[in-house]
Simulated assay, not measured.
Amino acid sequence: MALTPSTMLALKTQAPDFHLPDVVSGQTISLATFAGKKALLVMFICRHCPFVKHVQAELAQIGKDYSGKNVGILAISANNAATHPEDAPDKLKTMAQELGFTFPYGYDASQETAKAYTAACTPDFFVFDANRQLIYRGQLDDSRPSNGLPVTGKDLRSALDAVLADQPVNPEQKPSIGCNIKWKPGNEPGY
């Protein structure tokens, strides 16, 4: 397990488009799926990573807490299922069903979406405003599997709440930390 921080993509970056299959419904998800939403949360997660396992119940809770609000939420896994079979689409579907995810869970087989977002680790979070400009990237909160701090989602929730209230998002943002994305051989990005 390589401890990897998020790349901290430049704020105001425009959300890259994508076309990914939802592992649960089989439907194709794209930016247009979330048209009209005031905020969009894109999170790169997977099934096997201990950092994701540490926060997965909170991710499911965020989905439930914001389902009635004007927020689009999408989880994406880009891990190489050949080397990490626990992150294959059928296993991701089981994960989504077991945790009660209320949002789509896309599988990025080509890893092009992960590259477009400069995703580096799992979990990695990106929040975009109504114009799909990046306003938050970084950690869920200060909790890590070994530090004993409770999982609250405070950093991510604060960003979502600010967008919904038409308030500025705190520019002091800390990178997420987690397992590196499991790139296919020769597909590693240069960022």
Results as ranks from 00 to 15, higher is better:
I76M: 09
A78N: 07
P168R: 02
Q167A: 12
L156V: 12
N80P: 03
D142T: 15
K154T: 11
L9I: 08
L20E: 06
D17W: 09
H48D: 12
Y191H: 13
V151R: 08
A130E: 14
L92E: 04
A60G: 08
L20K: 01
T28C: 04
C179I: 07
M1H: 11
Y191T: 07
P16R: 05
T94F: 04
A39F: 10
R157T: 11
I29P: 04
K53S: 08
L140I: 15
R137W: 11
A162Y: 00
H48G: 10
Y191W: 14
N147T: 14
V24A: 11
T113G: 00
E188A: 12
L40F: 11
S6Q: 05
I181E: 00
K93I: 12
A159P: 02
T7R: 04
L156H: 01
I45Q: 04
N70W: 07
A75D: 03
Q139N: 15
T83K: 14
R132W: 08
R132P: 05
Y191G: 06
P85N: 11
D65R: 01
K12I: 05
V71E: 00
S143N: 12
L40R: 04
N70K: 07
C179D: 06
K115D: 02
A120Q: 10
T102W: 04
Q61G: 02
K115A: 10
S143D: 14
Y105H: 02
Y66E: 05
S146E: 15
A57L: 13
A120D: 02
T13R: 05
M43Y: 12
N147F: 13
Q27V: 05
P21R: 04
Q56H: 13
G190Y: 09
V151Y: 11
E172Y: 11
Y191E: 02
T94K: 15
S30F: 12
Y66Q: 02
Q133F: 06
T122C: 06
L41P: 02
A32R: 13
A165Q: 12
L156F: 03
N131E: 15
